[in-house]
Structures are given as structure tokens and as C-alpha cells.
Amino acid sequence: MPTPGNTVLTRALRLLDAFTPDRPALTLSEIARLTGMPVSTVHRLLAGLVAWGALERGDDGRYRVGLRLWEVGALAPRGQGLRERALPYLEDLSQITRENVQLAVREGTELVFVERIAGTGAVPVLSRVGSRFALTATGVGLVLLAHAPPEVQEEVLRAPVERFTPQTVVDPARLRRMLADVRSSGFAVSDRQVTMDALSVAAPVHDGRGAVVAAVSLVVRHGSAPAHALAPLLRTSARAISRALAQPTRR
């Protein structure tokens, strides 16, 4: 019997895990090197993944993530249902502000962006739909971490906090105070913590039982608007999305 963690499925997933935003296209030898598996094994697994549509092989011989995998991923209920109900309000927020609008959920000790609408002429951001990011630096991350279970907060705050800019808060004691402020004020502010030209303001989205299931944010150019002027708009949008999530699903 195959040992746990070394089944065909787990090895295939290791192949898929080799692809990242920085490595969207890989050769056979590169995948073998990144996964530590023999070339012959990788070649056999790649053939199966390509046949199913999880990967595609281009004319240059490099492998890329296939549309079939994207189609399956889009069925994830937490992302799909949330995105569908939130999208009209995200679009309204984008049209009103012409700024970057983001929607994210927590996955373990990281966040995952489930939607992003880029504003016309807005400040560039590092996020993209489906990408993961630290909970400690962004507006949406601070909201999600502030409302995460205590054990998740402790795990995040005990680990080294990644620094993105000189403004990134990495001190656990200061982060704890920030999280308490998020819970009391109902919104989070990330000022130049990810890039030196961006300010993010975020608010929590609740489900029908009152639990925080997501966070919505605006990312604007630093100095273009005070955070407290944006907070009421974010909280209004978050409440609208929360009401939409609380509505029964129509069949």
C-alpha cells in the first residue's frame, strides 16, 4: 500500500503546487526539480493531468494551469456564493469611488482574494483573484484576523510577521492593539503597510448568524483621502453584502 502523503493523488497535487504567480509556466525538468520527484514519475503524472485538463502544454513545451482546473475551483461554495451575492455592491462601490475594491476570506492563517475590481487610474495593487496574502498587513487581512478564533490569532502572532515596507507593523503587541481597535471601531486601516503608495480601509462582512465570513476593502493612493472619511462607505457596503448573504437562497 502507498504510504500516506505519497499516493498518486498527493504527488499530482504536489505537481500543481509547483505553479505560482511567479512561476506560471514550467518545463518538465523544472517541475521535477521543484517537487523532488523523478523525471519519469513527473512525466507520467503530467500526462494524466493534461489529459484531464488540469494542465495545458504549450507549443514551447512548458506546462501551464488549465481551464478545467479553474472551472472546478470556481465551484467552491464559499467563494462562489459569496462573490455572486457581493458583486453588485462591489460594483456600486467601484463606480462611486473609481478606486480598487477587494473582497477576501480567511483560509487558515492566510487570506484569499475572491474578487477584485480595479479602479480607473487607481493605485496599483499586489492582489489578484485567487491569490493568498498575509493576514497582518492588508486592510482585509486585519479585519479577518481580528475576528478569527483566538487560536488562529495566536498562531499568526507567534510566527515571524512578514515586512513589506518600512511601515509594515511587525510587533505582536502593536498588532494586538490594532486588532482590538478593529473590533471596537468596525473597520481596519492599513497605511502603506503593503506598498508605500497605498492606503487600505476594510470592513467585515457577516453571514446570517452574525459570524464574520469575509472582508471588503477600498485601496486608494496614500494621501488622496483620509481613512476615516472612507470608513463609513466601507461599513455601508459591508452591511449591504451581509444583508444579501442573510437572504435565503432562491431555487
Score class of each variant (00 low, 15 high):
R78H: 15
S185T: 08
P77D: 15
R128N: 11
R57W: 02
A122H: 09
S40L: 08
D171T: 02
F133M: 15
T7I: 00
E56M: 01
A202C: 14
G58D: 03
D22L: 04
T41E: 12
G223Y: 02
A134I: 10
L9T: 15
L111I: 14
L175H: 02
I31K: 04
E155H: 04
P204I: 12
A180W: 06
R158E: 08
D207V: 10
L179M: 06
V42H: 00
A173H: 05
R192D: 03
S40Q: 14
A54V: 04
V205T: 05
A104C: 09
R57K: 14
E155F: 03
G48V: 07
A18T: 01
P149S: 11
S184L: 04
A202M: 15
R11E: 06
V50P: 02
Q247I: 06
R221W: 00
S94W: 15
T10I: 01
G53A: 03
Y89E: 11
T165D: 03
R33E: 14
V129C: 03
R192A: 09
A198N: 11
L46C: 00
H222K: 13
T168N: 00
A137W: 01
V161E: 02
E56I: 01
P88D: 07
H228Y: 07
M37N: 04
S29Q: 11
R163C: 00
R235Q: 13
L13D: 08
V129K: 10
D22G: 07
E107Q: 13
L87A: 05
T165G: 00
P88M: 05
F133C: 13
P248G: 05
V194T: 14
H206P: 08
A202H: 13
V65A: 00
R57T: 07
V112L: 14
A118C: 10
V189L: 00
L230R: 12
V105D: 09
Y63I: 03
S237L: 11
A32T: 02
P248Y: 04
E151V: 06
D171L: 06
V72S: 13
V205R: 08
V50D: 05
A180I: 05
P160N: 00
F133K: 07
L9V: 15
Y63W: 03
L175Y: 07
P124L: 11
V101H: 10
P232F: 08
P166F: 09
L55F: 06
R183A: 04
V194C: 13
A86H: 11
Q102P: 12
S224W: 05
A188M: 08
R128G: 08
T195I: 12
A246P: 07
E154P: 04
V42S: 04
A122F: 11
M178T: 08
T138W: 08
E84W: 03
A134C: 14
G5A: 03
S131F: 12
L135S: 02
T168A: 03
L45P: 01
E56S: 09
E99D: 11
L46K: 01
T165L: 08
P77E: 10
P160Q: 02
V8K: 14
R57G: 00
A229D: 07
A32D: 01
V143K: 14
L103S: 10
A122K: 10
A134W: 12
G48C: 02
E56K: 01
L26H: 02
L142N: 11
P150M: 08
S94I: 10
F164M: 04
F113C: 15
